[in-house]
Amino acid sequence: MAVDLNQKYGLNPAHSEVVSACQVVPPGAALDMGCSSGRNALYLGQRGFVVTAVDTNPNALGHLQFIIDQEGLDAVTPRQYDIGTARLDADYDFIVCTVTLMFIDPSRVDAVLADMRQHTRAGGYNLIVCAMDTPDYPCPMNFPFTFGPGQLDAAYQGWERTKYNEDVGTMHNGARLRFATLLARKPA
């Protein structure tokens, strides 16, 4: 078994939904949106994906580049990019966007989702995990954006749902809130 690079470099483990999705999604070209220091990108890169890891934070990307250089990884390419611009310039087999959308300008979320769908190859997958704010479970965190009930599901009409739920979960900081979780496959 390969060395766990996240553990080796003091990063949080890959998101549990990314780990789970790798049981379904075959390796290919992947995009990690809002990669931070690369916990998901490194995980995917070690599992045969060729990963473009994007974030707006140059310090986080610098840390990821340091790990890539130390480990001689050629499967992960960090790139500075503001996902709120919704201007992807390549197509992917797997786009991962976990706990990222809630930090962008709410007026840009629909454009970002449309851009993700457009730049997913036929038969490819999108994985999204994002905070929700619902009447029965108000979000305890002051995120710029949260999904309402059914909102993420509606954005992926026509795609095959591999997984969809709006369950209560725990963030890495211990906060409990409802998340919209979607793993969907674009029609081939």
Rank of each mutant, 00 (worst) to 15 (best):
Q70M: 11
A75F: 00
F66L: 05
G34K: 02
G10A: 07
T85H: 02
C22D: 05
G62T: 13
D89L: 10
G48W: 05
L11Y: 14
Y9W: 13
V54H: 08
S16H: 14
A53H: 10
Q80E: 15
V99S: 10
V19T: 14
K8D: 05
Q23M: 10
F49D: 03
D32W: 11
N12F: 10
D74K: 06
V25Y: 04
I68K: 11
T98P: 01
D69M: 00
P27Q: 13
I68H: 03
V18S: 04
L42Y: 11
A53Q: 13
A60M: 00
S16M: 11
L44H: 07
R47C: 00
S36P: 00
Q7C: 10
Y9N: 12
A53P: 06
V24D: 11
P13F: 09
H63W: 12
C22T: 14
K8M: 01
V19S: 05
G10C: 12
Y92T: 01
T98W: 03
T98R: 05
N40D: 13
Q80P: 00
G72H: 10
Q80V: 14
T56V: 15
L44C: 04
Y92E: 00
E71S: 04
L42H: 11
S20F: 06
N40G: 05
G38E: 14
D82W: 02
A53L: 03
G38Y: 14
G62A: 14
G10I: 09
R39T: 12
A29R: 15
E17A: 08
A75S: 12
A60L: 01
Y92L: 01
T52I: 08
G48N: 04
A60F: 05
V19H: 02
A30M: 06
A41E: 12
N40V: 00
M33F: 06
A90Y: 03
G38N: 13
G45L: 07
M33T: 08
Q70F: 05
M33C: 15
V18C: 06
Y43M: 03
Y92W: 12
L73Y: 05
A90H: 00
D89Y: 08
C35D: 08
G10E: 12
R87L: 10
V99D: 14
